[in-house]
């Protein structure tokens, strides 16, 4: 690999890893509260489409982000209603969300056929173009759109919120022992709602970042291509810690960027093995082969105040 190829691969790592990190920011809170939001794949897809649509109509990426996050809020609330209030199975509900989102975005996109031939406004670069000419770090870091930088900073804030604020402590308490939390007077249901809604908002923002970060297009047939599930993998591999998860997202982003290059360039390692990497690492982490991971104690289980 030449130096140029390595630089473009590193830049693509941030470009692909950024949306994953954004999605993971919300998911970690949902899972810490005990709810596995499997619907992030579908919510991300919806966010990606809404982002492109609003950017196409208004040319304003801020409006596009807000619009996407609002849709994420709505879908997150729906997911919370089903899984927390109605106590439906979280995984099945999530899978149905993904199925509905896949069909729904295809339908809506067919109506928005004008965006096909038109690259919509994307996020601007944070730094002036002249920074991009700095060798190596210029193209890798300073040619990144502003949303990538937001994605790189957010895990630190999320870590602070999770470990150093009352709200973060409460969310963790709800996920580890909802009965004790309820006995201590915490509004368990409300906290779960908040955490799940957060996962919806950030999943949608991750989708907006995916389409408006660099590409500026939407494509039918599942543009997110399983990235929501890669985030689920990253959350497990990262041990439910925002910073470690962000690191895992970057590693998976690097693998993604590498496999795309291998598909076109050819290589000794089959590119499919790189595509498997996030999932294999997750299996290894869950099986206890790499380090010790400890899921939130009520991970994936519904909470029923009437249970003794």
């Amino acid at each position: 690999m030449s130096a140029d190829q390595i630089i473009s691969w590193l830049a693509a790592t941030l470009e692909w890893g950024g949306p994953l990190i954004l999605v993971s920011i919300g998911e970690v809170f949902a899972e810490r509260s005990g709810v596995i939001d499997v619907g992030i794949e579908g919510i991300m897809l919806c966010g990606a489409l809404v982002g492109v649509a609003i950017s196409f109509l208004t040319g304003n990426v801020l409006l596009a982000s807000i619009g996407g996050m609002f849709l994420g809020f709505v879908l997150g609330t729906a997911f919370a209603y089903l899984t927390v209030t109605r106590k439906t199975n979280q995984v099945v509900t999530g899978l149905m969300f993904n199925l509905a989102a896949l069909g729904g975005t295809n339908l809506v996109f067919a109506l928005l056929s004008a965006t096909r031939s038109h690259r919509v406004t994307t996020f601007p670069d944070l730094f002036p173009a002249s920074f991009g000419s700095i060798p190596i770090i210029g193209p890798v870091l300073f040619k990144q759109p502003v949303i990538t930088w937001i994605a790189l900073i957010l895990p630190f804030i999320a870590g602070w919120v999770l470990y150093h604020t009352d709200w973060g402590l409460n969310v963790r308490a709800v996920g580890d022992n909802p009965k004790a939390a309820a006995t201590a007077g915490l509004p368990v249901i409300k906290l779960k709602y908040q955490a799940v809604i957060l996962s919806g908002i950030f999943a949608a923002l991750g989708g907006v970042a995916l389409t408006l970060g660099e590409v500026g297009y939407f494509a039918s047939g599942g543009l997110t291509a399983g990235r929501g599930f890669i985030v689920l993998a990253a959350v497990v591999v990262g041990g439910w810690d925002p910073l470690k998860i962000a690191l895992a997202c970057l590693v998976f982003g690097a693998a993604d960027a590498a496999q795309l290059r291998m598909q076109t360039g050819g290589s000794i390692i089959p590119y499919q093995f790189l595509q498997m990497l996030p999932y294999l690492l997750t299996l290894a982490a869950l099986a206890g082969l790499v380090g010790r991971t400890r899921p939130p104690k009520t991970w994936g289980a519904p909470y029923d105040p009437a249970d003794v």
Binding site: V91, L232, A233, V236, Y279, T282, L286, G300
Partner: peptide
Amino acid sequence: VTTIMMNYV
């Protein structure tokens, strides 16, 4: 979670 991950593998 394991069965979902193995689907992709």
